[in-house]
């Protein structure tokens, strides 16, 4: 079993290609998230961001057609979803699934047990209460069924609660900011920053730069048409906030190759 004191580890994605129902979505993604860093993955709608998140987490619908992905040297792609989670991977879902009849408490205990992080009932309840308070989650959620009848904001906070309880080594946040108002966004972002650091790396997938003001990424990657077409520092997010994606990726109809040339100039200009 994984030692839950373990530090974060490197995520290395190399030439990853993925098809869904026979249609190629990712076409050779290269991406490295070194241990303990916070990286952002940005890109317009349909660029393949969520596909990468699901693929790294092991959703059976996403068929890997090429490339590799390792976490701390372990081959992720060879493992089923639960084994990846036990390695310390955590996916914060964009649309968390409701599981009627299964209470949050029972679910968390089962997950902790599965990951070899079981703790005495008293300690479990104490920690759960602390984390819930920090995330401003009402106590009644303990006995509510997972995501069943939750509002959009409640679901996102419940995801962060799970992250806080499970203490993963790498969290992938899939559009966690979507559908949140400013206050909820701040609460959720604070929840993540509290955990991020040497114990947990973060890959934030987002369409909008706003959440990055809180999460302060070390690096920002732009995904377009199934490839990482540009990587840079946090200033890249600022630029997108100011100018949108178009200056970087070119007009929507443009080929990825073509936009790559055009964007080099734009970035050079922006950095000048």
């Amino acid at each position: 079993m994984t030692d839950h004191q373990a530090l974060a580890a490197d995520l290395v994605v190399d030439g990853l290609s993925v098809a869904v129902d026979g249609k190629e979505i990712l076409r050779g993604v290269d991406l490295t998230v070194p241990a303990g860093e916070v990286h952002a993955l940005m890109g317009p709608n349909g660029s393949g961001k969520s596909t990468l998140a699901y693929t790294l987490s092991g959703h059976p619908k996403y068929a890997v057609t090429g490339g590799t992905a390792t976490f701390g040297g372990d081959d992720l792609l060879a493992l089923p979803a639960d084994a990846r989670a036990r390695l310390g991977l955590f996916l914060c879902f964009q649309y968390p699934t409701a599981i009627p009849g299964v209470t949050t408490v029972n679910f968390m205990r089962a997950a902790l047990r599965a990951q070899g992080k079981e703790m005495p009932a008293r300690e479990f309840i104490r920690r759960l209460n602390e984390e819930m308070a920090a995330l401003r989650i009402d106590e009644s959620f303990r006995a509510r069924y997972i995501n069943d009848g939750f509002s959009g904001g409640e679901k996102k906070r419940a995801e962060i609660l799970q992250m806080a309880m499970l203490r993963p080594r790498l969290s992938i946040l899939d559009e966690t900011d979507s559908g949140l108002d400013v206050d909820a966004l701040r609460t959720v972002a604070n929840g993540v920053t509290r955990l991020a650091g040497p114990d947990m790396s973060v890959l934030v997938i987002t369409h909008y730069p706003r959440i990055l003001e809180y999460l302060k990424p070390d690096r920002v990657h732009i995904l377009n048409q199934g490839r990482v077409i540009l990587s840079g520092g946090p200033e890249l997010a600022t630029q997108i906030e100011r100018e949108g994606y178009e200056p970087i990726i070119g007009p929507v109809a443009a080929e990825a190759g073509a936009s790559r040339t055009s964007l080099t100039g734009v970035v050079a200009e922006a950095q000048a």
Partner: peptide, 12 residues
């Protein structure tokens, strides 16, 4: 539902 739970480390 299965994927959601397995993504938290619980086996199938």
């Amino acid at each position: 539902q299965i994927f959601y739970l397995t993504s938290r480390g619980i086996d199938e």
